[in-house]
Simulated scan of single mutants.
Amino acid sequence: MFIFDRHMFITLCIGLLGAIIFQFLHIPMPWMLGAITAVLIVQLSTSVQLKWHRFFRNFGLVVAGYSIGFAFTPEAVRDIQLFLGSIIVLNVLFILLFFAVSYVVAKRTDLDFATALTCCVPGGMSQIVAFAEEQKDMDIAVITFFQILRVLLIVSFVPLLVAGSGGQSTMIAGTYTWHVAGMLALCGLAGWLAQKIKIPTSYLLGPILFLMGINMVGVDVPQLPGSLLHIAQLMIGIYIGLLLKKEDLHLSKRHIFYAFVSAGLFIGAAYGLTFAMTSLYSLDFRTGFLSIVPGGLDQMGIIAASVHANVTIVTAFQLFRVLVVSVFLVPFVKLFVKKAKT
């Protein structure tokens, strides 16, 4: 158990202030982007001690998982089958891009290829940073910066790119009831159990899988109040804003430049592939882009739910990428690093 102390309260107030300012300025997804921006500015430019407990981030993920799992009806799951070929092809393309970007980063910086691979894995940030910490001869600061910068750029710019691009209206308009509270508690339990059995992004995937099962057997699932999704965005936004620390900026200009370049290449490739995908299927731009961009299942899921994209399709694409990264890319990088040492 944790204590909600003064530092957490200050952090919450800063994130909330940023969200209010962004909402006043009519910036898309103000509750997440405003919180990220405000916390990031204070963290990098002042000596104020900011603190946030993982519990709040997990609560935000449970709410996001609920909103995504709610959309996984039997009809939606059948629709996903139409995209299986594209899911496989797009992930193969991103794997090829991953190797190409890693090669360029290794050639243009003083990083060895193993470290460049670790820097450029498109997803699985937590796994990659944890793996890098176990290695004694890897520059953990550079790897952390590359991974965090990609997440920050994607989460910051993607809502701006998809805002106003059309799409389905799936506004969550439920009310606060004991039924909702009970379902949320069960989703939290599902997240906890998923964590115990080592499922990636457990507090998001646990509720999604739980509500998918509930939907498949025909049990009624109540809609979430829209304000609860705003709270979830705030909780996750503050957490993301705290990822980048002052010490992460003490890198060479070349490392910082190529961190931006690698992230830009992934985002640019996703942007271009979106047009191909939307021409093949009757998808709106925001659904296609959020499905392809390598921003992580948790972030893209909550953005999809917030901008009214087709969350089932977005989640299917991002979930497959999580599996590819976890089952193929991360073990490959570990094996390559082990071979490089021998």
Rank of each mutant, 00 (worst) to 15 (best):
M1E: 05
F2A: 13
R6A: 12
M8Q: 11
F22T: 02
H26D: 14
H26W: 14
L33G: 00
G34Q: 09
A38I: 14
V42T: 07
L44K: 06
R57N: 09
V63T: 03
G65D: 11
Y66Q: 06
G69V: 08
A76S: 09
Q81R: 13
L82T: 12
I88W: 01
L93W: 07
L97S: 10
F98L: 12
A100M: 12
V105M: 13
A106R: 10
A106V: 10
K107H: 10
D110N: 13
D110W: 10
T115S: 12
T115W: 02
T118I: 09
C120A: 15
I128H: 01
V129E: 04
A132L: 07
E133C: 01
D139H: 13
I140K: 06
A141E: 08
F145G: 00
F145V: 01
I148R: 04
R150C: 05
V155K: 01
V158D: 02
P159L: 06
L161F: 14
V162Q: 05
I172M: 10
T175Y: 08
T175A: 15
G182Q: 03
M183W: 14
C187D: 03
L189P: 00
G191S: 04
I197S: 00
K198W: 10
I199F: 04
S202V: 11
L205R: 03
L205E: 01
P207Y: 08
M212F: 13
N215M: 07
N215C: 09
M216P: 03
P222V: 08
L224W: 03
L228T: 06
A232Q: 04
Q233C: 09
L234A: 02
I236Y: 03
I240P: 02
L243H: 10
L244M: 14
L251D: 04
K253D: 13
F257S: 11
Y258M: 00
F260R: 04
F260N: 06
F260C: 11
L265S: 09
L265R: 05
L265V: 15
A269L: 09
M277K: 06
P294V: 07
G301N: 03
A305P: 01
F317H: 03
F317C: 02
V327Y: 13
L329E: 07
F332A: 12
V333Y: 00
K334T: 11
F336V: 12
K338S: 11
A340E: 12
